[in-house]
Design a protein around this nucleic acid. Structure first.
Ligand SMILES: [Mn+2]
Ligand SMILES: [Mn+2]
Ligand SMILES: [Zn+2]
Ligand SMILES: [Zn+2]
Lengths: 141, 141
DNA sequence: AAGAACTTTAGAATGATTCGAAAAATGCAC
DNA sequence: GTGCATTTTTCGAATCATTCTAAAGTTCTT
């Protein structure tokens, strides 16, 4: 076990403690995979695969549970770009996305790079929870 | 059978002909339900229910087939606001959406009401297919 | 009417996600 | 530390939306 691993592990544990989540074996592994490599977008299936590749046996049900708990704790957000598969995003700052349907490529657009001129009037008794902009791309002709 | 029904039916048939789709019994019914009541957003399940309520027995598989055909012909577009359920939109003009997750409410925002200040630079060899803006709302505190 | 092409259909299959209930791990009180 | 209450994990079954398959039915052209 290298020093770097131990460090990442401790960071993951700190993160979980601060979020009020018990640092169980599987949560620590998933937090490590998710948060020690910069911003990323993953599906449950992908994350499960990575944890497995890391030598950690975690059930897919636990991966789903954990993703939802992390989301609830504000460590992750969900990105909706495809009806049929849920992406989770480690970047919780305000930002938007490029999406290439054919390849599944999902890439961040910094929040400041886009802004809207005006907001239309909202339906009665509602407030804005969040504005999601998805720029759908395709291969250049 | 009233005159209005006959008229809506003929319009539906014309629409299908112009789109190069054979006006089969089930396509005519679905086109009528979809296009003779102003802009709307439906799921396959909803549309199937409405057709049934109209006295037309159509299999759910056919509803799915038809929605995809209509989409392919440019009569419908798909709106992605929820990973898990596909919405089809009879409004094919450029526009955006308000979405209330809790209730499933999906409402149009006219295209002109929103505009972006600038577009960030795109990934290599890609062009914009479409820009989708979803303003997610929740009940006012 | 006949044949070719296209469409519908039921039901099985798939894929993503959730559920239920039992087993395991964890945190606290003694 | 031990014991107990609480939380978490896990497997497998269940669910839900959607797609597939192959057979049966319809439509269009001649
Ligand atoms: Mn979810
Ligand atoms: Mn689709
Ligand atoms: Zn992102
Ligand atoms: Zn719309």
């Amino acid at each position: 076990m290298k020093k770097a691993d131990t460090e990442a592990r401790e960071q993951a544990i700190t993160l979980l403690n601060e979020a009020g989540l018990r640092p169980t074996r599987q949560r620590v592994v998933l937090a490590q995979v998710l948060f020690s490599n910069g911003d990323r977008h993953v599906t449950a299936e992908q994350l499960h695969g990575e944890a497995e590749a890391d030598g950690a046996a975690i059930s897919l049900a636990t991966v789903y549970n954990t993703l939802h708990q992390f989301k609830g704790a504000g460590l992750l957000r969900e990105v909706v770009v495809d009806s049929g598969r849920a992406y989770f995003d480690t970047n919780t700052k305000e930002h938007h996305h490029f999406y290439v349907e054919k390849t599944g490529l999902l890439e961040d657009i910094a929040g400041e790079l886009i802004s809207m001129t005006s907001l239309p009037k909202l339906p009665e008794n509602k407030v804005v929870d969040r504005v999601d902009i998805v720029i759908r791309l395709r291969e250049k002709a």
